[in-house]
């Protein structure tokens, strides 16, 4: 119960420590709230590449993710709390991933599993590979490895617990006023287009065109 005590409000005499608990509403409610939800984080049943196989192994009997309350993989994003981005994120797939992320209800968390999801990994130089899912959606825990062992994924899950434990109902975004904003879904044009970067793309393309008009021998970017 020590983590519940708020020492800043009212001092409690030492001899009464075992009988009296002084805390704040925020701390008390957050504690109960986080205690309840951190042990039943439901991941989305969502696999991308090789790491998904290790994710399945983590769910199987030897590693048994059920010990940590996360065995209930939901096929629908509407019922999931956690998205495990398990594998290489390609340009063709990233619009769907962002859409799935937008469809998940708050509170939602993202674990980036493996080198590819974290930063492109061995395929970073590939023309169809996104250099890390955090270019588009916020990531809570990064799990390194190629692929990470199931134990590593479980460790990442425990790290997520710690993060959930530290959240306060007063500051979490989903209890603030107004609606939370959806991440704009990337578009597949001549290449992948991040709508948030469109003004920049427009300006740089215009500059490139002006330069090309001056020296016609210069090619495209």
């Amino acid at each position: 119960m020590d983590e519940l005590r708020d020492l800043n409000t009212m001092p409690v005499p030492l001899e009464l420590r075992d009988n009296v608990l002084v805390t704040t509403i925020d701390r008390f409610v957050s504690y109960i709230y986080n205690w309840g939800r951190k042990r039943s984080v439901w991941p989305m049943m969502f696999g991308l590449a090789c790491c998904a196989i290790e994710m399945i192994c983590a769910a199987a009997s030897r590693f048994d993710i059920a010990r940590f309350g996360s065995e209930l993989m939901r096929p629908s994003p509407r019922q999931a709390d956690l998205m495990i981005v398990s594998g290489t994120v390609t340009k063709k797939m990233v619009p769907q991933i962002v859409r799935l992320y937008n469809q998940m209800p708050e509170p939602k968390y993202v674990i980036s599993m493996g080198a590819c999801a974290t930063g492109g990994g061995p395929f970073k130089e590939g023309y169809n590979v996104v250099s890390g899912i955090d270019k588009f959606i916020p990531v809570d825990v990064y799990v390194p490895g190629c692929p990470p062992r199931p134990e590593a994924l479980l460790h990442g899950l425990l790290k997520l617990y710690e993060k959930i434990e530290r959240q306060s109902v007063r500051t979490v975004p989903w209890y603030q006023r107004g609606e939370s904003e959806a991440v704009p879904v990337p578009i597949l044009g001549p290449d992948l287009i991040d709508p948030r970067r469109l003004p920049e793309i427009r300006a740089r393309l215009a500059a490139l065109r002006a330069k090309a008009a001056e020296a016609p021998s210069e090619g495209a970017s």
């Binding site: 340009k91 492109g120 970073k124 590939g126 023309y127 590979v129 996104v130 250099s131 270019k135 044009g189 001549p190 290449d191 992948l192 287009i193 991040d194 970067r197 469109l198 793309i201 427009r202 393309l205 490139l208 065109r209 090309a212 495209a220 970017s221």
Partner: peptide, 11 residues
């Protein structure tokens, strides 16, 4: 970023 756009493309 890992992208490139042709000159004649209209954003």
């Amino acid at each position: 970023d890992n992208v490139q756009y042709p000159l004649d493309w209209d954003p």
